[in-house]
Amino acid sequence: MDLAADTVLLDGKPVPLTGVEFKVLRYLVTHLSRTVSREELQGFLDSFETPGASARSIDVYVGRIRRKLGNARHAVATVRGGGYQFVPGQCATVRGPAEYCI
């Protein structure tokens, strides 16, 4: 994920995320050291005046992100009773503060 260019690449190909999906993934990536609750994600999306950002719609957005990530879907993990966490796989590399590859 290139946070500076607002793009997500998987095996060198762009992942077609909607604006809300990208914001959710970006938030998880930038907070990868901890679990992010549904309520926190909802509050984050509310700050952008995103319509329909209820706790259950967060689950839908995460599901869509996982489908679009295909083989890298494991990178967005569910933390039971806690929310979601970005977990880079063992092949992941961090190239700098603005880029993450999954």
Rank of each mutant, 00 (worst) to 15 (best):
L45E: 00
V79L: 00
L25P: 05
I102R: 06
G63Y: 08
L3A: 02
G43K: 11
R67E: 04
R66I: 10
R56A: 10
G63K: 13
R34A: 11
P88C: 09
R67W: 07
T50R: 14
T78R: 15
K68P: 01
Q42E: 09
L3F: 01
S47Q: 05
Q90F: 12
G82I: 07
S47I: 15
T93S: 02
S47K: 06
Q42W: 02
V36E: 02
V62F: 01
T7A: 08
E21H: 15
P14F: 05
V8Q: 06
V60Y: 07
A4E: 01
P97D: 14
Y61H: 12
R66T: 14
R67P: 03
Q90T: 14
G70Y: 09
R34E: 11
R73G: 01
G82P: 00
G63P: 01
S57V: 15
Q90W: 11
G96E: 02
S37N: 07
Q85D: 01
A55Y: 04
S47H: 02
G81N: 07
G52D: 01
D2L: 04
G63S: 11
S37L: 01
P88E: 09
R38V: 08
G63R: 14
P16E: 15
E40F: 05
L45F: 05
I65S: 12
V76L: 10
A4F: 07
T7D: 03
V60N: 04
E21S: 03
A53R: 00
V60F: 12
E21C: 06
S33V: 15
S57Y: 07
A53T: 04
L3S: 03
V60K: 13
S57T: 14
P14E: 09
G89I: 11
G83D: 05
P97Q: 13
Q90Y: 06
A55Q: 02
G19T: 14
R80T: 08
E99M: 13
Y27M: 08
Q42R: 15
S33W: 03
E40C: 09
G96W: 01
R26P: 00
R38N: 01
S33K: 12
P14M: 13
